[in-house]
Design a binder for these strands. Structure first.
Lengths: 341, 341
DNA sequence: CTGAAAGCGCTAACAA
DNA sequence: TTGTTAGCGCTTTCAG
C-alpha cells in the first residue's frame, strides 16, 4: 500500500542501502546517483517509515510533554516555550493533556515510553499522593533504563531534572504587597487540594500573614480548581459565607478572572471595594479592567529551559529554580482609599 | 538496554508469542499463564515497543493535529475538542505548531506521514498560495495512499473531509449589527493577508456594508496578524491615520483585545466613543470590560467533529458547515448614544 | 492453549 | 562508491 524504500530503490535502479544513504546523508554517494534517488523520492512522494527506522536508530527525535490542560493559558505558554526549542532542534513534540488526573498522567508516560520518546516533560505541580508518587518514581526509573530523560517542569516530587518557579516566595511577596497597602482581612482562593502548587502558594500566603502578626483564618480560604469558573464559584461561596475581607488573593490568574466577575456581580468594585491579585501573569491579566496585579512566573522561559534540559546529555539531577516577581498593576488600592470609596 | 518481550517471556517461562497474546488479549490464554506473564510485565516495568508493533499492525493509534499556534485561545479550544474525542477513543495526539508558516505546515504533514499516523487534522484557514495548495494537494494524495485520513478544520482548500465555520456569514451579521445601531463609518482590523479566514471575514464585512448602501473604504481597513499585539498596532495605525470611524470590527477576538487597549490609551471609551466587536468568542471575551460582542465560532465542537471525521471510516470527502452566531454583549452602543457620550 | 518461525521496513556492518 | 545481508522487537500464521 505505502511506498517503501525498495520502491524508490528499484525506480532509481539502486539498492535499498543507497537510498538510505542518500536520505540520511551520512555516507558518500555519487552525485548523479543521488540525483536519481532524489528524483525517485519526489516522484513517489516517499517518506521513511519512522517506525522501522526507530527500531534501529537509538533516538526517535520525539519528546513528549504532559500538561494538565493546553487550553489553560498557563500551560499554553509553557508549551510555547517548549515548542520553540523543540522546533529549533528539529524535535517532534507530542502534547498530552492529563486533565489533572494522576492515573492518566502515569498512563501517558507509559504510552510515551512505548513510543520510545527521547524525553518526557511533565508540567504542572505534583499531586501529594503516595501511590502516585510511587508510580511516578517507577516510571522515572524505567525512563532512565530506556535511556530517556525526564524533566519536571513546575515541581520535583521525584529525582529528576526539574525547572521550578518560586511559588511560595511569590505568594509571600504578593500577600505582603496587600498587607503594605493596609489590608489585614485578606482572603485566598486556594488551588485544587493535594497539588504542590496550591500548597506552596498557600504556605507563602500564610507566612506573609504571620510575619505581620496576622493569624490565618480558615474561613477566608476558599478552595477552587484553577479554572476561571472554579474561581468564580469559590468567590461566590466566599461572599455567601459572610466573612469580611478587603482583599483577595487568587492562587492563579484564571481564578482571579472568575473572582473579578463574581465580585462585580455582587456589586463590589475592584479595587474600589476589594483589592484583587492573582498568580501567573498569563497574557490576559494586563488586559483585564483593572489590569491585574499578579506574580509573574516566567512561563515561556520555564518551557524553554525544560526542553533544553530534555535535550542535554543526562547529568546528575539538576533543579533550576526560577524566580517569580510581583507585577504591580491597578487592582490593589490602599485600605484607606478603599474605605472612602 | 530496554526490556524486550523476550525478557518478559523468559521470566514468565513462556514464549514471546504468549506474552504478545496476553498483552493484546486477542487470543485465549490459560488463566494461570496470563497471571505469570502479567506479573513479569509488572516486575520488569515492560511496555511494548510501539515502533516494532507499528511495523506489523496497520493502525498506530496516533493522530496528528497541526495548528497555527496552541497558545492562541482559538486553537487551544479546537485542540481541547480534538483531545476530548481522541482520549475517549484512546488515540495518542501529536500537536504541531505551524506558526502560520506554509512550508512548515507541509513538512509537519510529511513528518506525521513518516510516523504513519492514522490521520492528520489541519486546523486554521488556508493560505491562498498556489505552490502551497499544490504541495498540500500532493500530501493529501499521499496520505490517502498510506490509508490515512486528512481532515481540514477551518477551511477546505483541497479535496478532503472538512469542518468549516461560516466566517463570511458571521462577519456579515455582526457588521449588520453595527449598522443597525446606526454606524456607517465602520473600521475593520483585517486578518493576516492571504489567509482564507481573513478574506472570508473581510468579504462578509464588505457585503454587509454594500447591502446597506455603504461603500467600503480602504482607509478604514487596517491589517493585523490575529495576535493581540498585532491588533493593538493595527488600531494604533488606524487612529494615527486620522480617518473617522464610530465602530470597529476586529477580524478576531485577540485583535479586539489589543484594539480595546489602544482605544483606551487614545482616550477613547468603548462603547462610549467607539463600538467594538470581535470574532471567535474565545473564553476571555466575556471577561473583558466591557464584555465583547462577537461572533461565536463553535470551536470545541469543530475540534470534536474533526476528530470524529478523522476516526470514521473513509468516505467521500464530506464538508460539515457549522453555523456561527452573533453573541450580543456590551461593546456596542447606538450611534445616537455614542454621539451624546 | 502454546511454541517456532517468518517477516514488517529500515540501517549498518561487511564485502566488493 | 555501491550492494548484500543480518538483524532491530514485535505479531501472526502455522503446527502441535
Amino acid at each position: 500500500m505505502t511506498t517503501r524504500i525498495s520502491d524508490v530503490a528499484s525506480r532509481a535502479g539502486v539498492s535499498n542501502a543507497t537510498v538510505s544513504r542518500v536520505l540520511n546523508g551520512n555516507y558518500p554517494v555519487a552525485a548523479d546517483t543521488r540525483e536519481r534517488v532524489l528524483a525517485a523520492v519526489r516522484d513517489l512522494g516517499y517518506v521513511v517509515n519512522a517506525h522501522a527506522r526507530a527500531l534501529i536508530v537509538t533516538s526517535t527525535g520525539t519528546v513528549g510533554v504532559i500538561v494538565h490542560d493546553v487550553s489553560d493559558p498557563y500551560f499554553a505558554e509553557i508549551v510555547r516555550g517548549v515548542q520553540e526549542v523543540a522546533d529549533a532542534n528539529e524535535r517532534l513534540l507530542v502534547i498530552c493533556n492529563s486533565t489533572r488526573n494522576p492515573a492518566r498522567e502515569i498512563s501517558y508516560i507509559e504510552m510515551l515510553r512505548s513510543h520510545r520518546v527521547d524525553a518526557v516533560i511533565l508540567a504542572g505541580g505534583y499531586i501529594e499522593d503516595d501511590d502516585f508518587l510511587l508510580a511516578l518514581d517507577q516510571q522515572a526509573r524505567q525512563l532512565r533504563v530506556q535511556g530517556a530523560r525526564l524533566v519536571l517542569c513546575g515541581h520535583h516530587a521525584v529525582r529528576a531534572d526539574a525547572v521550578v518557579p518560586d511559588n511560595a516566595g511569590g505568594a509571600y511577596r504578593v500577600t505582603n504587597e496587600l498587607i503594605r497597602a493596609g489590608h489585614r482581612r485578606i482572603a485566598h482562593l486556594v488551588g485544587p487540594p493535594g497539588f504542590s502548587t496550591s500548597l506552596h502558594r498557600l504556605h507563602g500566603y500564610h507566612r506573609a500573614l504571620e510575619s505581620s502578626g496576622i493569624t490565618p483564618d480558615a474561613r477566608l480560604e476558599s478552595p477552587g480548581d484553577f479554572t476561571r469558573d472554579g474561581g468564580y464559584d469559590a468567590c461566590v461561596r466566599l461572599l455567601a459565607s459572610g466573612v469580611d475581607f478587603t482583599a483577595l488573593f487568587a492562587a492563579n490568574d484564571l481564578m482571579a478572572v472568575g473572582a473579578l466577575s463574581a465580585l462585580r456581580e455582587a456589586g463590589l468594585s475592584v479595587p474600589g471595594d476589594v483589592s484583587l491579585v492573582g498568580f501567573g501573569d498569563i497574557p490576559i491579566s494586563h488586559d483585564l479592567t483593572p489590569p491585574l496585579t499578579t506574580v509573574r512566573v516566567p512561563l515561556i522561559e520555564m518551557g524553554r529551559r525544560s526542553m533544553e534540559l530534555a535535550l542535554s546529555p543526562a547529568e546528575a539531577d539538576r533543579v533550576l529554580r526560577l524566580p517569580t516577581e510581583v507585577v504591580t498593576r491597578q487592582s490593589i488600592a490602599t485600605l484607606a482609599s478603599q474605605a472612602t470609596a
